[in-house]
Design a protein around this nucleic acid. Structure first.
Lengths: 191, 191
DNA sequence: TGTACATCAGTGAACGCGCGTTCACTGATGTAC
DNA sequence: TGTACATCAGTGAACGCGCGTTCACTGATGTAC
Protein backbone atom coordinates (compact mmCIF):
# COMPACT_ATOMS: atom_id res chain seq x y z
CA UNK A 1 0.00 0.00 0.00
CA UNK A 2 2.11 2.88 1.21
CA UNK A 3 5.17 3.35 -0.95
CA UNK A 4 8.61 2.51 0.35
CA UNK A 5 9.83 6.05 -0.13
CA UNK A 6 7.90 8.73 1.67
CA UNK A 7 8.49 11.40 -0.93
CA UNK A 8 8.95 14.38 1.34
CA UNK A 9 9.87 13.05 4.72
CA UNK A 10 11.95 16.06 5.64
CA UNK A 11 8.90 18.30 5.32
CA UNK A 12 6.69 15.80 7.14
CA UNK A 13 9.06 15.58 10.10
CA UNK A 14 9.26 19.35 10.47
CA UNK A 15 5.48 19.60 10.34
CA UNK A 16 5.19 16.85 12.95
CA UNK A 17 7.68 18.72 15.13
CA UNK A 18 5.59 21.89 14.89
CA UNK A 19 2.37 20.13 15.80
CA UNK A 20 4.03 18.26 18.65
CA UNK A 21 5.60 21.48 19.93
CA UNK A 22 2.23 23.23 19.93
CA UNK A 23 0.79 20.36 21.90
CA UNK A 24 3.55 19.73 24.41
CA UNK A 25 6.38 22.22 23.96
CA UNK A 26 9.78 21.63 22.32
CA UNK A 27 10.79 19.26 25.11
CA UNK A 28 7.60 17.26 25.02
CA UNK A 29 8.46 14.93 22.16
CA UNK A 30 11.12 12.53 20.91
CA UNK A 31 12.48 11.63 17.50
CA UNK A 32 10.56 8.38 17.73
CA UNK A 33 7.39 10.36 18.37
CA UNK A 34 7.91 12.37 15.19
CA UNK A 35 8.51 9.18 13.23
CA UNK A 36 5.24 7.78 14.55
CA UNK A 37 3.37 10.94 13.56
CA UNK A 38 4.88 10.85 10.08
CA UNK A 39 4.09 7.16 9.75
CA UNK A 40 7.64 5.98 9.15
CA UNK A 41 10.02 3.71 10.99
CA UNK A 42 11.66 5.22 14.03
CA UNK A 43 15.09 5.40 12.45
CA UNK A 44 14.02 7.32 9.36
CA UNK A 45 14.23 10.84 10.85
CA UNK A 46 17.86 10.27 11.81
CA UNK A 47 18.65 9.97 8.13
CA UNK A 48 17.56 13.57 7.49
CA UNK A 49 18.37 15.40 10.69
CA UNK A 50 20.88 13.37 12.66
CA UNK A 51 19.27 14.06 16.02
CA UNK A 52 16.64 16.12 17.78
CA UNK A 53 18.84 19.20 17.78
CA UNK A 54 18.99 18.91 14.00
CA UNK A 55 15.20 18.98 13.77
CA UNK A 56 14.97 21.97 16.11
CA UNK A 57 17.64 23.81 14.12
CA UNK A 58 15.63 23.28 10.94
CA UNK A 59 12.48 24.50 12.71
CA UNK A 60 14.27 27.61 14.00
CA UNK A 61 15.74 28.42 10.57
CA UNK A 62 12.42 28.05 8.81
CA UNK A 63 10.69 29.99 11.59
CA UNK A 64 13.06 32.94 11.39
CA UNK A 65 12.69 32.96 7.61
CA UNK A 66 8.89 33.20 7.81
CA UNK A 67 9.17 35.67 10.66
CA UNK A 68 11.51 37.97 8.73
CA UNK A 69 9.18 37.75 5.72
CA UNK A 70 6.20 38.76 7.85
CA UNK A 71 8.01 41.74 9.35
CA UNK A 72 9.40 42.90 6.01
CA UNK A 73 5.97 42.78 4.43
CA UNK A 74 4.82 45.62 6.66
CA UNK A 75 6.90 47.80 4.38
CA UNK A 76 8.22 50.49 6.64
CA UNK A 77 5.11 50.92 8.80
CA UNK A 78 6.78 50.31 12.10
CA UNK A 79 3.61 50.13 14.13
CA UNK A 80 2.32 47.36 11.89
CA UNK A 81 5.64 45.53 12.18
CA UNK A 82 4.99 45.33 15.92
CA UNK A 83 1.51 43.99 15.33
CA UNK A 84 2.90 41.48 12.83
CA UNK A 85 5.42 40.32 15.45
CA UNK A 86 2.59 39.51 17.85
CA UNK A 87 0.42 37.96 15.17
CA UNK A 88 3.27 35.70 14.07
CA UNK A 89 3.73 34.48 17.62
CA UNK A 90 0.02 33.77 18.04
CA UNK A 91 -0.43 31.98 14.73
CA UNK A 92 2.90 30.13 14.68
CA UNK A 93 3.62 29.27 18.26
CA UNK A 94 5.30 26.05 17.20
CA UNK A 95 8.01 28.09 15.52
CA UNK A 96 8.01 30.89 18.09
CA UNK A 97 8.44 28.59 21.07
CA UNK A 98 11.59 27.20 19.49
CA UNK A 99 13.10 30.36 17.99
CA UNK A 100 13.67 32.18 21.27
CA UNK A 101 15.20 29.19 23.02
CA UNK A 102 18.64 29.17 21.39
CA UNK A 103 19.87 26.65 23.94
CA UNK A 104 17.70 24.04 22.21
CA UNK A 105 19.23 24.25 18.75
CA UNK A 106 22.44 25.20 16.92
CA UNK A 107 22.01 28.96 17.15
CA UNK A 108 25.10 29.57 15.04
CA UNK A 109 23.68 27.69 12.06
CA UNK A 110 24.16 29.98 9.03
CA UNK A 111 20.55 29.65 7.88
CA UNK A 112 19.37 30.64 11.36
CA UNK A 113 21.68 33.60 11.82
CA UNK A 114 20.97 34.99 8.36
CA UNK A 115 17.20 35.02 8.77
CA UNK A 116 17.46 36.25 12.35
CA UNK A 117 19.59 39.21 11.28
CA UNK A 118 17.07 39.97 8.54
CA UNK A 119 14.29 40.17 11.13
CA UNK A 120 16.43 42.22 13.46
CA UNK A 121 17.10 44.65 10.64
CA UNK A 122 13.43 45.59 10.46
CA UNK A 123 13.44 46.50 14.15
CA UNK A 124 16.72 48.38 14.01
CA UNK A 125 15.66 50.44 11.03
CA UNK A 126 12.22 51.13 12.45
CA UNK A 127 13.58 52.21 15.81
CA UNK A 128 15.84 54.69 14.07
CA UNK A 129 12.69 56.35 12.75
CA UNK A 130 11.26 56.71 16.25
CA UNK A 131 14.35 57.70 18.14
CA UNK A 132 14.67 61.39 19.07
CA UNK A 133 18.46 61.31 18.82
CA UNK A 134 20.98 58.86 17.30
CA UNK A 135 22.37 58.23 20.77
CA UNK A 136 19.02 56.82 21.80
CA UNK A 137 18.62 54.54 18.79
CA UNK A 138 19.70 51.45 20.67
CA UNK A 139 17.59 52.13 23.76
CA UNK A 140 14.49 52.76 21.64
CA UNK A 141 15.17 49.63 19.61
CA UNK A 142 15.49 47.51 22.77
CA UNK A 143 12.41 49.19 24.22
CA UNK A 144 10.22 48.52 21.23
CA UNK A 145 11.56 45.00 20.89
CA UNK A 146 10.90 44.41 24.58
CA UNK A 147 7.32 45.57 24.40
CA UNK A 148 6.34 43.55 21.34
CA UNK A 149 8.24 40.49 22.49
CA UNK A 150 6.90 40.82 26.02
CA UNK A 151 3.34 41.09 24.82
CA UNK A 152 3.76 38.06 22.58
CA UNK A 153 5.35 36.01 25.38
CA UNK A 154 2.74 36.93 27.96
CA UNK A 155 0.00 36.17 25.47
CA UNK A 156 1.41 32.73 24.68
CA UNK A 157 1.90 31.89 28.35
CA UNK A 158 -1.76 32.64 28.93
CA UNK A 159 -1.12 35.55 31.28
CA UNK A 160 -3.07 38.00 29.12
CA UNK A 161 -5.41 35.60 27.37
CA UNK A 162 -7.35 34.69 30.46
CA UNK A 163 -8.83 38.15 30.97
CA UNK A 164 -9.26 39.18 27.34
CA UNK A 165 -11.69 38.62 24.51
CA UNK A 166 -10.55 38.82 20.92
CA UNK A 167 -7.28 37.97 19.22
CA UNK A 168 -3.75 38.98 20.12
CA UNK A 169 -3.33 41.54 17.34
CA UNK A 170 -6.36 43.60 18.39
CA UNK A 171 -5.31 43.83 22.02
CA UNK A 172 -1.71 44.48 21.01
CA UNK A 173 -2.81 47.36 18.82
CA UNK A 174 -4.52 49.16 21.69
CA UNK A 175 -1.56 48.57 23.99
CA UNK A 176 1.05 49.75 21.49
CA UNK A 177 -1.10 52.77 20.71
CA UNK A 178 -1.00 53.99 24.29
CA UNK A 179 2.65 53.18 24.86
CA UNK A 180 4.05 54.53 21.61
CA UNK A 181 1.69 57.46 21.42
CA UNK A 182 4.21 60.04 22.48
CA UNK A 183 7.08 58.56 20.54
CA UNK A 184 4.98 58.48 17.38
CA UNK A 185 3.72 62.04 17.92
CA UNK A 186 7.14 63.53 18.57
CA UNK A 187 8.70 62.11 15.44
CA UNK A 188 11.88 63.98 14.59
CA UNK A 189 11.40 65.99 11.37
CA UNK A 190 13.80 64.37 8.95
CA UNK A 191 15.71 61.49 10.47
CA UNK B 1 28.23 8.49 58.63
CA UNK B 2 25.40 10.46 57.09
CA UNK B 3 22.28 10.32 59.21
CA UNK B 4 19.29 8.32 58.11
CA UNK B 5 17.08 11.37 58.15
CA UNK B 6 18.13 14.22 55.95
CA UNK B 7 16.70 16.93 58.17
CA UNK B 8 15.41 19.28 55.52
CA UNK B 9 14.98 17.26 52.38
CA UNK B 10 12.11 19.38 51.10
CA UNK B 11 14.34 22.45 51.05
CA UNK B 12 17.24 20.50 49.53
CA UNK B 13 15.09 19.16 46.69
CA UNK B 14 13.78 22.61 45.80
CA UNK B 15 17.31 23.99 45.80
CA UNK B 16 18.46 21.13 43.61
CA UNK B 17 15.56 21.84 41.25
CA UNK B 18 16.61 25.48 41.01
CA UNK B 19 20.22 24.65 40.28
CA UNK B 20 19.26 22.01 37.75
CA UNK B 21 16.82 24.40 36.08
CA UNK B 22 19.50 27.06 35.77
CA UNK B 23 21.79 24.50 34.17
CA UNK B 24 19.40 22.73 31.83
CA UNK B 25 15.94 24.28 32.00
CA UNK B 26 12.87 22.94 33.79
CA UNK B 27 12.66 20.00 31.37
CA UNK B 28 16.31 19.09 31.67
CA UNK B 29 16.13 17.04 34.85
CA UNK B 30 14.27 14.16 36.47
CA UNK B 31 13.17 13.37 40.01
CA UNK B 32 15.98 10.84 40.18
CA UNK B 33 18.43 13.57 39.20
CA UNK B 34 17.27 15.77 42.09
CA UNK B 35 17.61 12.84 44.49
CA UNK B 36 21.17 12.32 43.29
CA UNK B 37 21.99 16.00 43.79
CA UNK B 38 20.50 15.95 47.29
CA UNK B 39 22.35 12.75 48.11
CA UNK B 40 19.31 10.66 48.94
CA UNK B 41 17.74 7.54 47.48
CA UNK B 42 15.80 8.07 44.30
CA UNK B 43 12.45 7.43 45.92
CA UNK B 44 12.83 9.98 48.69
CA UNK B 45 11.62 13.03 46.73
CA UNK B 46 8.34 11.27 45.92
CA UNK B 47 7.63 11.27 49.64
CA UNK B 48 7.55 15.07 49.74
CA UNK B 49 6.29 16.11 46.32
CA UNK B 50 4.52 13.17 44.73
CA UNK B 51 5.92 13.84 41.28
CA UNK B 52 7.87 16.33 39.18
CA UNK B 53 4.84 18.58 38.80
CA UNK B 54 4.70 18.79 42.58
CA UNK B 55 8.28 20.02 42.72
CA UNK B 56 7.67 22.58 40.00
CA UNK B 57 4.53 23.81 41.75
CA UNK B 58 6.54 24.35 44.94
CA UNK B 59 9.21 26.20 42.94
CA UNK B 60 6.60 28.42 41.28
CA UNK B 61 4.88 29.22 44.59
CA UNK B 62 8.13 30.11 46.31
CA UNK B 63 9.24 32.07 43.25
CA UNK B 64 6.10 34.18 43.10
CA UNK B 65 6.37 34.84 46.82
CA UNK B 66 9.93 36.17 46.51
CA UNK B 67 8.98 38.02 43.33
CA UNK B 68 6.03 39.76 44.99
CA UNK B 69 8.25 40.68 47.93
CA UNK B 70 10.83 42.22 45.62
CA UNK B 71 8.24 44.27 43.76
CA UNK B 72 6.49 45.42 46.92
CA UNK B 73 9.77 46.56 48.42
CA UNK B 74 10.07 49.27 45.78
CA UNK B 75 7.37 51.03 47.79
CA UNK B 76 5.37 52.85 45.19
CA UNK B 77 8.23 53.89 42.92
CA UNK B 78 6.88 52.33 39.77
CA UNK B 79 10.01 52.84 37.73
CA UNK B 80 12.03 50.93 40.32
CA UNK B 81 9.42 48.17 40.37
CA UNK B 82 10.17 47.63 36.68
CA UNK B 83 13.88 47.49 37.37
CA UNK B 84 13.25 45.08 40.25
CA UNK B 85 11.26 42.84 37.86
CA UNK B 86 14.25 42.59 35.54
CA UNK B 87 16.73 42.17 38.37
CA UNK B 88 14.67 39.34 39.83
CA UNK B 89 14.66 37.54 36.49
CA UNK B 90 18.42 37.92 36.09
CA UNK B 91 19.31 36.85 39.61
CA UNK B 92 16.70 34.12 40.00
CA UNK B 93 16.36 32.58 36.60
CA UNK B 94 15.69 29.18 38.10
CA UNK B 95 12.46 30.54 39.57
CA UNK B 96 11.67 32.82 36.64
CA UNK B 97 12.01 30.09 34.02
CA UNK B 98 9.39 28.06 35.85
CA UNK B 99 6.97 30.80 36.94
CA UNK B 100 5.96 31.87 33.44
CA UNK B 101 5.43 28.33 32.17
CA UNK B 102 2.12 27.53 33.85
CA UNK B 103 1.76 24.42 31.71
CA UNK B 104 4.58 22.86 33.73
CA UNK B 105 2.98 23.08 37.17
CA UNK B 106 -0.39 23.30 38.92
CA UNK B 107 -1.13 26.93 38.13
CA UNK B 108 -4.30 26.89 40.22
CA UNK B 109 -2.43 25.96 43.39
CA UNK B 110 -3.63 28.39 46.09
CA UNK B 111 -0.12 29.33 47.19
CA UNK B 112 0.78 30.12 43.58
CA UNK B 113 -2.30 32.16 42.76
CA UNK B 114 -2.12 34.16 45.99
CA UNK B 115 1.50 35.26 45.48
CA UNK B 116 0.94 35.85 41.78
CA UNK B 117 -1.98 38.16 42.48
CA UNK B 118 0.11 40.00 45.01
CA UNK B 119 2.77 40.66 42.36
CA UNK B 120 0.16 41.60 39.82
CA UNK B 121 -1.27 44.12 42.26
CA UNK B 122 1.94 46.14 42.22
CA UNK B 123 1.75 46.45 38.44
CA UNK B 124 -1.95 47.27 38.38
CA UNK B 125 -1.61 49.96 41.01
CA UNK B 126 1.50 51.42 39.43
CA UNK B 127 -0.07 51.57 35.98
CA UNK B 128 -3.00 53.49 37.42
CA UNK B 129 -0.54 56.19 38.41
CA UNK B 130 0.80 56.47 34.86
CA UNK B 131 -2.40 56.20 32.91
CA UNK B 132 -3.81 59.45 31.46
CA UNK B 133 -7.41 58.28 31.82
CA UNK B 134 -9.09 55.44 33.74
CA UNK B 135 -10.17 53.91 30.41
CA UNK B 136 -6.52 53.44 29.52
CA UNK B 137 -5.52 51.85 32.83
CA UNK B 138 -5.59 48.35 31.44
CA UNK B 139 -3.72 49.17 28.23
CA UNK B 140 -1.00 50.99 30.18
CA UNK B 141 -0.75 48.13 32.65
CA UNK B 142 -0.36 45.59 29.83
CA UNK B 143 2.10 47.89 28.08
CA UNK B 144 4.32 48.34 31.07
CA UNK B 145 4.12 44.66 31.95
CA UNK B 146 5.00 43.77 28.37
CA UNK B 147 8.04 45.98 28.31
CA UNK B 148 9.53 44.80 31.60
CA UNK B 149 8.67 41.17 30.94
CA UNK B 150 9.92 41.38 27.37
CA UNK B 151 13.21 42.89 28.43
CA UNK B 152 13.66 40.21 31.09
CA UNK B 153 12.83 37.41 28.63
CA UNK B 154 15.11 38.70 25.90
CA UNK B 155 17.89 39.15 28.42
CA UNK B 156 17.56 35.60 29.71
CA UNK B 157 17.44 34.16 26.20
CA UNK B 158 20.72 35.90 25.46
CA UNK B 159 19.28 38.10 22.73
CA UNK B 160 20.35 41.29 24.48
CA UNK B 161 23.28 39.97 26.48
CA UNK B 162 25.47 39.26 23.51
CA UNK B 163 25.81 42.90 22.49
CA UNK B 164 25.85 44.51 25.92
CA UNK B 165 28.27 45.10 28.74
CA UNK B 166 27.04 45.46 32.30
CA UNK B 167 24.15 43.92 34.17
CA UNK B 168 20.50 43.68 33.22
CA UNK B 169 19.28 46.35 35.63
CA UNK B 170 21.57 49.05 34.23
CA UNK B 171 20.58 48.45 30.62
CA UNK B 172 16.92 48.12 31.61
CA UNK B 173 17.07 51.48 33.35
CA UNK B 174 18.22 53.28 30.22
CA UNK B 175 15.60 51.52 28.09
CA UNK B 176 12.72 52.21 30.47
CA UNK B 177 13.85 55.81 30.76
CA UNK B 178 13.46 56.42 27.04
CA UNK B 179 10.24 54.48 26.68
CA UNK B 180 8.43 55.80 29.74
CA UNK B 181 9.83 59.31 29.43
CA UNK B 182 6.67 60.84 28.08
CA UNK B 183 4.33 58.84 30.28
CA UNK B 184 6.29 59.87 33.35
CA UNK B 185 6.45 63.49 32.27
CA UNK B 186 2.75 63.79 31.53
CA UNK B 187 1.63 62.42 34.86
CA UNK B 188 -1.98 63.34 35.52
CA UNK B 189 -2.19 65.83 38.40
CA UNK B 190 -4.07 63.95 41.10
CA UNK B 191 -5.02 60.40 40.08
C1' DT C 1 12.03 9.43 84.19
C1' DG C 2 11.18 5.32 81.48
C1' DT C 3 8.95 2.38 78.37
C1' DA C 4 5.75 1.13 74.32
C1' DC C 5 4.10 2.14 70.26
C1' DA C 6 2.55 4.88 66.30
C1' DT C 7 4.07 7.77 62.84
C1' DC C 8 7.17 9.63 59.81
C1' DA C 9 11.35 9.76 56.61
C1' DG C 10 14.17 7.40 53.81
C1' DT C 11 16.02 2.71 51.63
C1' DG C 12 16.95 -0.50 47.96
C1' DA C 13 15.56 -4.13 44.88
C1' DA C 14 12.56 -4.95 41.14
C1' DC C 15 9.49 -4.00 37.19
C1' DG C 16 8.14 -2.39 32.66
C1' DC C 17 8.63 1.40 29.31
C1' DG C 18 10.25 4.67 25.86
C1' DC C 19 14.31 6.40 24.46
C1' DG C 20 18.62 7.00 21.25
C1' DT C 21 21.84 4.37 18.68
C1' DT C 22 23.84 0.67 15.91
C1' DC C 23 23.69 -2.49 12.10
C1' DA C 24 22.83 -5.44 8.31
C1' DC C 25 19.21 -5.18 5.21
C1' DT C 26 16.03 -3.95 1.17
C1' DG C 27 13.42 -1.31 -2.01
C1' DA C 28 13.45 2.69 -5.23
C1' DT C 29 15.73 6.05 -8.01
C1' DG C 30 19.04 8.08 -10.87
C1' DT C 31 22.95 7.83 -14.10
C1' DA C 32 26.59 5.91 -17.31
C1' DC C 33 27.16 3.64 -21.35
C1' DT D 1 15.93 2.32 -25.84
C1' DG D 2 17.89 -1.06 -22.57
C1' DT D 3 20.79 -2.73 -19.09
C1' DA D 4 24.13 -2.44 -14.98
C1' DC D 5 25.30 -0.45 -11.11
C1' DA D 6 25.86 3.13 -7.59
C1' DT D 7 23.49 5.90 -4.52
C1' DC D 8 19.92 7.14 -1.70
C1' DA D 9 15.78 6.49 1.50
C1' DG D 10 13.69 3.79 4.66
C1' DT D 11 13.27 -0.88 7.48
C1' DG D 12 13.26 -3.69 11.59
C1' DA D 13 15.60 -6.25 15.13
C1' DA D 14 18.61 -5.62 18.90
C1' DC D 15 21.15 -3.23 22.63
C1' DG D 16 21.86 -0.67 26.87
C1' DC D 17 20.17 3.23 29.66
C1' DG D 18 17.56 6.29 32.64
C1' DC D 19 13.15 6.90 33.90
C1' DG D 20 8.79 6.62 37.07
C1' DT D 21 6.47 3.54 40.05
C1' DT D 22 5.62 -0.16 43.35
C1' DC D 23 6.65 -2.56 47.57
C1' DA D 24 8.27 -4.57 51.70
C1' DC D 25 11.63 -2.81 54.65
C1' DT D 26 14.19 -0.14 58.41
C1' DG D 27 15.87 3.58 61.08
C1' DA D 28 14.61 7.80 63.71
C1' DT D 29 11.38 10.69 66.07
C1' DG D 30 7.61 12.02 68.75
C1' DT D 31 3.88 11.08 72.05
C1' DA D 32 0.90 8.65 75.59
C1' DC D 33 0.98 6.85 79.90
Amino acid sequence: MSPYHHGNLRRAIIDAALTATEEAGPSGWSLRELARRAGVSHTAPVHHFGDKTGVLTAVAAEGYRLFADALEQTAGDFFEAGVAYVRFAEQNRGYFDVMFRPDLYRADDPAVTAARERARGVLVTGARGLSPTPEQDRAVMLGVWSIVHGFASLWLSGAITESTTGDAATTARSVFQVMLDQLLRNLPPSR
